[in-house]
Amino acid sequence: MAGATHTGSKLRSEGRLARAATWRMPRRRARRETLAGAATLPALAFLAIFALFPLYEMVSMAFGDVGFAEVVTGEWEHTTSNFADLPESRGFLDALENTLVFVAIVVVASIAFGLATAHVIRLERLSRRTLQTMMVFAWALPPIISGSVWKFILSGNGVANALLGLVGVDRQLWLADPGKSLYSVAFVTAWQAIPFAALVLKASLLDVPPEQVEAAAVDGATRRHVFVHVTLPHLKPVLVVLTVLITVYAFRSFDLLFVMTQGGPGTSSTTLPFLAWRRAFEFGHFGEGAALACISSAFIVAAAAYYSRVSRRLDEG
């Protein structure tokens, strides 16, 4: 555009053309911009109805005395008790604690094992490729299926106890013992997340500049030193993104909890989003469920804000 105006000042006849171009160009560009915007409209309209509007309904239900009948009629009495009663609700406080423990275990286990796995499958050998295929399959398997199989494996008369019995470990109730159920489901949730973490970390590990590793080795660095001072700093941004993504993944977990323990025994494996669902669909207290849903969604908005800040910084850097 700047070039066009420049020639225009030199030659009168071309100048007119150039001027014409300078005002026509933005208009054509604006039309393209409108077209690009229009292409997003069907998706945005769909999301407005089925994703955004429900969020609005969630808030309005949270401030209402809503049972199933009220969901159908759409009319309910206003109340703030859904929120006001929460600090004294045992179920809420337990779920909060369960969520914290559950998410922490899944994140730490997924990243630690993901890193170990990435280190192993990085080598291109038949055994590693076979393992990678098995792991991607485990990830692709619907949680309802893997949850059912793990429920059988971890049941009282299941495979886990049979195998552990061989090495002299006493029979354990992995899912029926309130002191173990949350950890067992966290283990299976991590099992499903590890393939994801491993593949992401593998790609990143292969990117570590070999010159830096060699240079460090020449300087007499031990393997641990190379890992801490060369590999880890290289992986750091990916580790941060993975931590956020797996936190959200663990926080959202539902299917595995539902299949394996249904949040029990009692409330021992009920996390916050699961409690919201239970209050609404199991007990018919949709207002209370919506209030809990508002609280757990607030966590997610915070995580999303952090994620988009981190990933933007990664894009720029």
């Binding site: 669902w277 919506a290 988009s308």
Partner: peptide, 22 residues
Amino acid sequence: LFSLIVLQMVPQANSVIPLLRV
């Protein structure tokens, strides 16, 4: 994009409650 990330992260077990109404 930020709105999409937020919508993507809302737990399904939560959005299911108001979706019933919708």
